[in-house]
């Protein structure tokens, strides 16, 4: 656990951070994704730019929708009454990241920049249609969560760009849940399922579903959504969704030696059922 040599600078503003980052630099916020890979010498950035002290990057505001600063910690999001009200699934997912110490330090921006496919928040962000706001030397831009996550540990983020915040639509009229099957070793998700349902009387008017853990990135599951939309969430519809979700993630499966792809794919069906039950329970 002895990282390579690197330079460290602490930025006071986003502009300063962007000016310091250079070609071989990495932004450092909570450090809970970056520092472990540096200690294992899997990453060796020459420059770390600490953005932890930039106030404008931190905090949660609720104004029609949710805006969450990039350096807001998982613990802050999990505990936020606004997040609990407007996107209960995200509060739940952030409350299931790592352990309390990790949640107290790890940030949502760092989490999604790292793009670990088994991490919890990305699955909810994809399900609930979050937008990621990015700033670079050439200005700022926004990208949907679904487009942001490209592949295993791969995002739409260009070198030198910084995630500043993310925004989510107000989903307070949704029934929303994130259910996770934790890997017994790492407690990352073997499979994590986010479900967000808009009900119109007894009928499901809109279903948003995403799966992570079992996949190389969080995947939006259109087949499962279609199976539920317009249904009364009866057994037949839920069974159809549980089948469809396996096909939805079929092109993106991931696994490890102990919990192979085929198993995770099957578990996506099981945990979709459980997520629907949790959302509507």
């Amino acid at each position: 656990m002895w990282p390579n040599e690197f330079d460290y600078a602490r930025a006071g503003s986003v502009d300063e951070a962007l000016s310091l980052i250079g070609d071989e630099g990495k932004f450092l916020a909570g450090g809970h994704s970056l520092l472990p890979v540096m200690k294992l010498r899997l990453a060796a950035p020459e420059q770390l730019v600490d953005i932890g002290g930039i106030d404008s990057l931190r905090g949660i505001s609720a104004d029609g929708g949710l805006t969450i600063g990039a350096t807001t910690t998982h613990a802050e999001i999990a505990a936020s009454a606004d997040v609990q009200a407007m996107c209960a699934g995200l509060a739940s997912a952030c409350g299931q990241v790592g352990d309390q110490a990790v949640r107290n330090f790890g940030t949502i921006g760092g989490n999604i920049a790292h793009a670990d496919p088994a991490s919890d928040p990305p699955t909810v962000l994809v399900a609930c249609g979050a937008t990621i706001h990015i700033q670079g030397a050439d200005g700022s831009r926004s990208v949907s969560a679904q487009d942001f996550f490209v592949d295993l540990f791969e995002t739409d983020l260009e070198d030198g760009e910084l995630i500043t915040s993310l925004s989510l639509p107000n989903c307070s009229d949704c029934q929303c849940a994130y259910v996770k099957f934790p890997h017994p070793a790492s407690r990352y998700a073997i499979v994590g399922v986010a479900v967000c349902l808009k009900m119109d009387g007894g009928t499901c008017a809109q279903a948003d579903i995403a799966v992570g853990g079992a996949t190389v990135k969080a995947v939006k599951c259109g087949g499962a959504e279609a199976a539920l939309t317009g249904s009364t969430l009866d057994d037949a519809a839920i069974s159809a969704a549980a089948e469809a979700v396996k096909a939805d993630i079929g092109d993106w499966l991931a696994g490890d030696i102990a919990y192979p792809e085929s198993y995770r794919q099957q578990m996506a069906g099981v945990f979709l059922r459980r997520a629907i039950a949790a959302a509507t329970g």
Binding site: L40, P184, A185, S186, Y188, D256, I257, A258
Partner: peptide
């Protein structure tokens, strides 16, 4: 019985080289 076990690849690489993959028991089990 439940979770611990070393896994090597066929060519002798330790695949359970960290606690991310080698399952240490936890109190809540």
């Amino acid at each position: 019985a439940l979770c611990e076990g070393v896994i090597y690849s066929d060519d002798g690489q330790l695949l359970t080289g960290t606690m991310q993959d080698y399952c240490m028991p936890k109190a809540d089990m």
